[in-house]
């Protein structure tokens, strides 16, 4: 309940007037705000009106008021992006002129290439090769020291430009693991035999009583043309080294037999034409820097 009284009501202890309202006997002292405070409030209202005029403010049915300054946050972003592109263009000049070897010899260019390569890798490569080039089954790990098609800067650049087994590019890397089973060149038992032999030269355990001599015989007949007489592989043909600890598809007997019978032919797309030369150079230097790069 509030009652209004006539005349200012004086509060005896403080000597101040009250607002004249009483709520269950409790009254409020009337302590007026300083007038400048009110002016400050009016000023903020004025500021708001100025803001409506200057900046986009009011929603309309299909659009909104645009403000006399013509500001929009989207335009600001576009402007910032253009400025960034322009700045990158200046930085790219160095990358555009230099070869990958020249870039790798210059620490400043290398830093720039790695930064740009990392971004481009994230956009284009992680789908198959994984974050950081970790790879997966059938997709080479780019951080190790095994390179199917070669791990020098020039090798990596060539693979990036033309891909591997990419039929649309006539300079693509070629070389297939034949499907010895499907082509009728080997029976399953023979495949199992040659797999035991391959496991033996890779330092993996061999089934007891396995006929390694027969396996070796089959290896010499069918495999040495690509993988070499010692199984060390051949990068020109994309034939991997069979003696090391790295297995693209896995080293279990089942997988190896499957590989021999059905063949393997992983594809890497050609990026020339899809990515600009500077990005390809940056990617080359980045991939080379992941840990496995060779000289």
């Amino acid at each position: 309940m509030s009652e209004a009284k006539h005349g200012p009501d004086l509060d005896t202890p403080t000597g101040q007037t009250t607002t004249g309202h009483s709520w269950d006997g409790i009254k409020e002292l009337n302590t007026p705000l300083p007038r400048w405070w009110l002016w400050t409030f009016y000023l903020t209202i004025l500021w708001a009106v100025g803001y409506w005029i200057a900046y986009p403010a009011w929603p309309l049915i299909a659009s909104h008021t645009t403000g006399v300054l013509g500001y929009s946050s989207r335009a600001e972003l576009a402007q910032a992006m253009t400025a960034l592109e322009a700045r990158r263009d200046v930085q790219s000049a160095g990358l555009r002129q230099a070869t990958v070897d020249q870039i790798a010899a210059d620490p400043a260019l290398t830093r720039m290439a790695i930064a740009r390569g990392r971004a481009a890798f994230g956009d284009n490569c992680v789908g198959c090769h994984g974050q950081g080039g970790a790879g997966g089954i059938g997709y080479p790990n780019l951080t190790d020291d095994e390179w199917i098609w070669g791990g020098t800067l020039a090798d990596i650049e060539l693979t990036l430009l033309h891909g591997a087994r990419w039929s649309q590019d006539n300079r693509t890397r070629t070389g297939d693991m034949l499907a010895f089973g499907k082509l009728g060149l080997m029976q399953r038992a023979q495949a199992e035999s040659v797999v035991e032999y391959v496991r033996s030269i890779a330092g993996l355990d061999v089934e007891r009583g396995a006929d390694l001599a027969r396996g070796r015989q089959l290896f010499v007949e069918h495999c040495v043309s690509c993988h070499g007489s010692e199984g060390k592989g051949n990068r020109t043909l994309g034939a991997p080294d069979l003696t090391d600890a790295i297995w693209l598809y896995g080293s279990s007997r089942t997988v190896l037999v499957e590989t021999v019978l059905n063949g393997r032919a992983g594809i890497m797309p050609a990026w020339a034409g899809r990515l600009d030369p500077v990005t390809i150079k940056a990617l080359t230097v980045y991939v080379h820097s992941l840990g496995g790069g060779q000289r």
Partner: peptide
């Protein structure tokens, strides 16, 4: 009544 006193003062 409007004699509640001013809400602001110089």
């Amino acid at each position: 009544t409007d004699d509640d006193g001013p809400l602001y003062a110089p």
